[in-house]
Amino acid sequence: MTDNKELNSPGYAIPDDLQHAVSITTLDRLYNWGRRWSVWPMMFGLACCAIEMIAAQAARYDLARFGMEVMRPSPRQSDLMIVAGTVTKKMIPAIVRLYNQMPEPKYVVAMGACASGGGPFKEGYNVVAGVDKFVPVDVYIPGCPPTPQALTAGLMKLQEKIDKQSIRKVRWYQKGSDSALIPIPVLGPDLMDPRRYAEIKQLAAQKPAEKATEAKE
C-alpha cells in the first residue's frame, strides 16, 4: 500500500524500513476510512432540493469523487438518506418505513430548510416541521435550496462525523439494538405518532379554554 497520510498516522512513529511497505493504523481509523469514502445515498428526492442533489451528482459537482456515485433507489442497499425537500404529513409514513428498512450503519442528512425545520412552508397544515421529529438527523444543511457546493460541504461534515465514531461505542454494535425501529405514523384526522398516543388522548380531552391558555404559555 502506498503511504496514505490519513491512515498511516496511528499516533506513534513508524520505523523507517516499514514506511512504504506496510500500513499501520488503528482499527477504528481503518473502519471509518472505509465507511466514509463509500457512503451510498438513497435516491430519495422529495421536492426542489432533489434537483440540486441530482445536480450535485451530475458531472459538474461530481459526488462520485467522494465515493457516493452509487445512488440506490432501494433502501436495503443504501447507507445515507438525504431527505431533500419538504416532508409532508402524507409522506412521512413512507419516509419512516424507508428509514426502518435501511440496514445499519445508516445516516440521515436533512438537506435544505424544509427538511431541517419545516422551511418556508412550516406554517402549512400538511407539513411536518422538520424530519427530525420522526427520524434522527446527523447533519442539517440550511439553504433553499442549498447549492451543490453547499450540499457537498454538508456531506463532508458527515464524513467528519463518521471519522469520529469508534467501533466500541457505535450504535449498531451495542447489545439490544436490534429493535431500534421507529413506529410508523398513522394518518387520522391529523398525523398520529404512535409514540405519543397517550399524550394525544390526554391533550385532546382537555376543554378548549384550557387548551388556549396552555398553548399561550
Binding site: G118, K122, G124, Y125, V127, V128, A129, K133, V186, G188, P189, D190, L191, M192, Y197, I200, K201, L203, A204, A205, P208
Partner: peptide
C-alpha cells in the same frame, strides 16, 4: 407540534 385533533379524540 403542527397538529390539531377533534375534541375527545382517542387515537
Amino acid at each position: 407540534d403542527n397538529l390539531q385533533f377533534p375534541q375527545n379524540f382517542d387515537p
